[in-house]
């Protein structure tokens, strides 16, 4: 494993990845990405940066493995219960006035957040009218998401989160438990489509009433955050909602004046007309 990567090597690696494979990590926040690189060298038994560069330059399969490993793919159902409670109370009632409700989960990882949303929508009687577009740049995440499988050992935590988010149903009705995975009820997944979309390189593809992009901006530097907020602005209907992660902020973003806070603590904003 490589203990620490110098700034020079880091820049080289990002360049190699961009030029060879078209994935652009230039404007990612360096502290975390550097750590992902070193962590990957541990996983792939690589002992120096030269070897890492050499493999990247010569082995496309190696890169595919690497790219799936370096994005942070962690997620939870109903993470930050207060956020979901706010969605229930302040956002969904407003969305109810649209005949068709289009929602985009950008950076959905393996889907846990999307299923949580589907549960809220079902409980609000809105799921039938919803089209949920769930995207990520990591293909392995999407393959996992399409299966609707969640680790069974986490279900206890998720049940607590669900209850704290204001859920009153029996949470176990929403999935079928196997030995070590739980499969989210197929009926809940009826209006979700998962597909690949890279926020750095891909464009606007639809118009939404709500965009959820949580815990993705933390991996971007300010320049990239700003570009992606522009993309979201253009992808929202007027007065459409944008939800970020609980510790993410528009404060350092020049686009912030185009949005107004709906619930500042839970990082829900609305596109101004």
């Amino acid at each position: 494993m490589v203990e620490e990567i110098s700034n020079g090597d880091f820049t080289d690696l990002v360049k190699i990845i961009q030029q060879r494979y078209g994935y652009d990590f230039t404007d990612y926040a360096p502290a975390s990405l550097k750590r992902r690189f070193t962590r990957f060298t541990g996983f792939a038994h690589i002992s120096n940066v030269f070897e890492l560069k050499h493999r990247l330059l010569n082995d496309a399969g190696f890169f595919q493995e690497m790219v799936q490993y370096i994005t942070v793919n962690v997620t939870e159902m109903f993470r930050d219960p207060a956020f979901y409670k706010t969605l229930r109370e302040q956002v969904l009632p407003r969305l109810a006035s649209y005949p068709i409700i289009k929602i985009w989960h950008a950076g959905c990882a393996s889907g846990e957040e999307v299923y949580s949303m589907a549960i809220l929508l079902e409980e609000a009687g809105l799921l039938d009218r919803c089209r949920i577009y769930a995207t990520d740049m990591n293909a392995a995440n999407l393959r996992k998401a399409k299966k609707g499988a969640v680790a069974l050992k986490d279900m206890k935590d998720y049940t607590c989160n669900y209850i704290q988010s204001g859920g009153v149903n029996d949470f176990s009705n929403y999935y079928t438990a196997g030995c070590d995975t739980a499969i989210i009820d197929a009926a809940l997944r009826r209006n979700i489509i998962f597909f690949q979309h890279n926020l750095v390189t891909d464009q606007v593809f639809n118009e939404f009433q709500l965009i959820c992009c949580r815990n993705v901006f933390i991996y971007f530097n300010r320049t990239l955050q700003e570009r992606v907020v522009k993309l979201f602005y253009e992808s929202l209907t007027s007065l459409g909602y944008l939800a970020l992660g609980i510790k993410e902020s528009l404060l350092y973003n020049d686009e912030r004046f185009k949005f107004e806070p709906v619930n500042a603590a839970n990082k829900i904003f609305r596109r101004k007309v």
Binding site: A29, P30, A31, S32, I218
Partner: peptide, 12 residues
């Protein structure tokens, strides 16, 4: 970060 700002990480 090197520019003296915080960044958060949701990694394992």
């Amino acid at each position: 970060e090197e520019d003296g700002s915080f960044s958060l990480d949701y990694a394992e």
